[in-house]
């Protein structure tokens, strides 16, 4: 299987980070991976995307125009991604910021109030992790446990942060 994943939002929403987690988890499971950030000139607050390939084969394009899985963290990202997701693809929409609903019948669109759910687990800064959990609940791209292992490694020196991220991931995974 070759998973093509695009995640977009404002810079600062943790778009690159959840892409990175997916890539690291894919790599740890022995897959070929690529991760490409794509953003406008501002260091903070501009439009930001990342493209992740997770594949059993040699990866072609590092830029993805038709993702199997898309995560739209803000309205601009939704407008950009919604038409491009592959038929039968998965679109995770950050319902906290995006009010539109997709009219595409060939799409699995999932609306997730990421900010509210993130507050429930303790801090809105992990809204991105909620969205990642929602991806994992709907698509067998990598296992939840493999992402948790990556988090364990990355945040081993910051237990409270680690627990917050884990809680957010599991909260996102609970969505059905």
């Amino acid at each position: 299987m070759n998973w093509e994943i695009t995640i977009s939002g404002f810079g600062g929403q943790g778009v690159l980070f959840i892409g990175r987690l997916l890539m690291e988890a894919g790599f740890a499971s022995g897959q070929q991976v690529s991760w490409l950030p794509y953003y406008s000139g501002e260091k903070r607050g501009g439009m930001c995307s990342c493209f992740v390939n997770i594949s059993e084969e040699r990866i072609g394009s590092i830029f993805i125009s038709h993702p199997d899985i898309a995560v739209a963290m803000n309205p601009a990202a939704y407008a950009m991604l919604e038409p491009d997701v592959k038929p039968d693809g998965l679109l995770i929409v950050n319902e906290s910021l995006v009010k539109e609903k997709s009219q595409r019948p060939d799409l699995k669109a999932v609306y997730v109030p990421t900010v509210e759910l993130a507050k429930e687990v303790g801090d809105e800064s992990v809204a991105n992790i909620i969205a990642l959990g929602a991806v994992l609940a709907r698509a067998p791209v990598v296992t939840t446990s493999s992402v948790i292992r990556v988090l364990n490694q990355m945040m081993s020196k910051n237990k409270p942060q680690l627990e917050l991220n884990k809680a957010a991931l599991l909260k996102g995974c609970e969505l059905s």
Binding site: M23, V33, W35, L36, P37, I62
Partner: peptide, 9 residues
């Protein structure tokens, strides 16, 4: 620049 910024194994 895209290659420069990309991460792969």
């Amino acid at each position: 620049g895209f290659l420069g910024q990309s991460v792969e194994s």
